[in-house]
Every structure is written in C-alpha cells, then in structure tokens.
Write a protein that binds this DNA or RNA. Sequence first.
DNA 1: ATGGACATGTTATAGTATTACATCACTGAT
DNA 2: ATCAGTGATGTAATACTATAACATGTCCAT
Lengths: 137, 137
Amino acid sequence: MNDHVHVDPAALTKNQALVFSALSDANGPLTAYAILDELRGDGFKAPLQVYRALEKLIEGGLVHRLESLNAFVACRHPTGCSHQWAAFAICESCGDVKEFSPDKAMDLLKDWAENDGFKLAKTTVELRGQCPACLAT
Amino acid sequence: MNDHVHVDPAALTKNQALVFSALSDANGPLTAYAILDELRGDGFKAPLQVYRALEKLIEGGLVHRLESLNAFVACRHPTGCSHQWAAFAICESCGDVKEFSPDKAMDLLKDWAENDGFKLAKTTVELRGQCPACLAT
DNA sequence: ATGGACATGTTATAGTATTACATCACTGAT
DNA sequence: ATCAGTGATGTAATACTATAACATGTCCAT
C-alpha cells in the first residue's frame, strides 16, 4: 500500500519538532535560512541545525523540498499518503504552493522508468505558473 | 505544434556560443562554475558571464536547467521539439542524465492545471534513481 | 554622428549548503 | 555501575551557487 517510512511526529527530536513547527505555521515554503531566523529565539544559531532537522523530516515524509525554489514545505497530507510522489503547483506571482498527487501521471512516469530499466528512487514534479487567485486580479 | 521560440545556433553571441559548446562537449550536466572553469582559457573571468549566457540559451531552448542538481545540460533534441516539457532521468550513481518526453504524463499534468485554473508556464520533471548500466554492475 | 538596444567586463555581495570536529545524551552489554 | 556505541547537537569555518550594481563596448537605424 505504501512503501514509505513515516515518522511518528511525537518521536521528533527537539530541533526537528521546532523546524517542523516553523514550517507548519508558515503559509508557504520557507528557505533554510528563513527557518533559521524563525528559530533564533529558540536557540538556533547555525544553518546546520536547520539542515540536519530538514534531512530527517524529509526522510520521514513530513516535509518536502521544492527544488526549483530551494525551499521547504510541511506536507499537508495526512500521514500515510504517498509522499514520495507528490507534485507541486507553484504560483510565480504570490508564491503560493499547492501540493497535489497526480497519480495517473506518476504511474506513466514509473512506467517509463520501468521500460527503460531505470530504478526510480524519487521524482520531482514542480509546475510553475499563475494560480487562479492571481489570474483573477 | 510548438509554442516555443527557438534560437538559430548561428545567431548566438560569442559568449553564448562558448557556453553552449562547453555544454555540448560535456558528457553530462555541468554546473555554472564548472562551465566557468572550462572557459577560463577563452577569457571568461566571472560567473556572471556564464549565467548571462545560460539565461539566453535556456530561453532559446538550447539548454535545460536541472533544478535538483543546480546544473545545466545541452538539449540533445533536434531544434523544434517540445523543449518546454522535457523530463530527465538522473542516475544518482554515475551522474548520467537522460532527457525524455513523457507526452502522456505531461498532458495529464496540463489537464490537472487546467482543471484547477492554474496557468501553466513551465514544468520541472526530474526522476532520480539508478540507470540500467549502474544496476548491471 | 548620434542615440538606443543589447552584449560584455568587473567587482562586490547575497544566498544556499556542507565539512570538520567537539560535545552531549541515551542505550545496551558486560 | 561502567563502558562502548550510536545518534543528536553545538559551533566555526568554508565551499558552492547566484545576483546586484555599475562601467564599457558594439552594432545598427535614424
């Protein structure tokens, strides 16, 4: 059903919990250094503290990295969904990011990989453009 | 048929031609700074010379940016194909990158965007994993 | 020849990520 | 209880990626 290892949020370490909380509270994606600034009041002093926590959170499927933004978002999906195959629509006007799961498209990409003999570990799918709200204005 | 503006390679400026040539000669993706080092013998001295040329080459569809690598590849397709919708399979063992055009999957992503009212400008699709050659060893 | 558009040169700086090494906290085996 | 091993953390330094700002050059159309 799901080949992804999920982390019990209650099992997060202090730093991981702080980073996850900062991302969850944010409306959109945050860069590592933005997270660092958010958490200076909690004793964070160096980027590595953020990057280390992010690494674990991403492994656990609680956070996604947006490659085209060098930024990070908390996963909004309930624990247990297919985090590995998430896709993102990124509005270039307002910065809003919407996570979705284009299962059919992902299946086709998996098929392509399989037919090519490519062992797929993860996919990055990021759509850039204008969100409906920005188009309306 | 094709809504992409293509550049006549003969119309490239000197710097653009040098950068394109460096990328074409390379077996795989190069970072901007790797390109800079390649071209120091040709008088390149600053990253901006590379980045400016890359910007134009990407606009023209001659070069693609790999977001998950912060690197760049020359497009191997003949001028005229759908560069905007290219996808890449990136081998995490040997670094080899294969460009492909998963039209069906891209159509589904376009459909998703359309149904959501999202005006799609470009897509990033990058598959990470192991290529057949590396799996065989 | 002059003005405008665009390509280029150069320096400095901003933004993103990792290496290296020291310390601490917990757990399990003796 | 002690010790070794593992993993989390702290800290400083550095490497890597990208852009801002400003000066200069080149070419073409008027």
